[in-house]
Design a protein around this nucleic acid. Sequence first.
DNA 1: GCTGTTTGACCGGTACT
DNA 2: AGTACCGGTCAAACAGC
Length: 332
Amino acid sequence: MDSIGGSATVSRQICHEDCFSGQEANVKVGEEQLQDHGEKLTSSKSEDSSNNKEEGVIESVKAEMGQVREENERLKKMVQQMEKDYQSLKFHFFDLLGQETCKKSEDSTPSSDETEESELVSLCLGRTPSESKKYEKGSNSSRSSRENEDLEAGLTLGLDSKFQMSTELESNPSPENSLDAKEDEAGETWPPSKILKRNIDDEDAKQGDVKRARVCVRARCETPTINDGCQWRKYGQKIAKGNPCPRAYYRCTVIPKCPVRKQVFIYINIVICTRFYSILSYAIGLFFITTYLWTKVLDFKKSNSIIFSITNDIFDGETFNFNKIKSQEQKY
DNA sequence: GCTGTTTGACCGGTACT
DNA sequence: AGTACCGGTCAAACAGC
């Protein structure tokens, strides 16, 4: 379990590079062969008439190759120009996006915690699926742009690799939060009310006050699963709408009836890595987003200790402010 | 035999009409 | 209100050790 390697991207890129270097070598070999062939032809003076014809062929081939080179340079410039245009447009888009977000935030007075939003790891407290649906509307563009940023970031996260993290606490819906809300809709939905209902059925009978808040720790890495020190049992797999790659569902087996769940989503990132003449090479990179979820059903401390052990392993060296979570917990 | 994975079926929530 | 769709879970079958 959890032992699938994460070297697919590297191996693919190596394959592409090898492939292209091989093509280039083949062409060079072809040129040399032509030159050698031409030298051999010119060296035999007894076959002048045939040599003249072949020399003509060689010259025409050389001229053709020169034209191809020119075409190659021209295409290269075109691609560079397109990349520049793309970058400028993207920058302009994000600029407009930021202005729009500022306008919305002025109206909705977001909490200070939202400024600590993370691209890689987020802590989410107390969002319900209905809230996610509620606030995703009207923020599609924002979310998609952010997701694109995420995709383009190409960042890694793991126990033995560098990472970036911050905390994100969500108690007051805002446009910023809606970004993650939409992302949840696309690939990272919260545990269904089914789970909650089961927990409620079990424990709500004992205590009347049911708290539906849930907490999420989200991490991105290049391997399907993060070595978080916990034992996970896969209990399901689904192909989510809009994503051809399946999502996997894991539950913690360390503690009986552990409320912690883990969901692993696969994202495909396609980048242009090399170019040879007019042929573009695409590197298909897979990265995985692991979402830890647990329901804060009357036993936040227990869940907190579990997730703390997980995050402590994952985010070694980073301060993980659970006081904020606890402060948010009191709101529920 | 035990443990973990796979996968189709089922259930409940939500959106749509 | 009825219906369809979708996400999450269950559980039997299967595989590996």
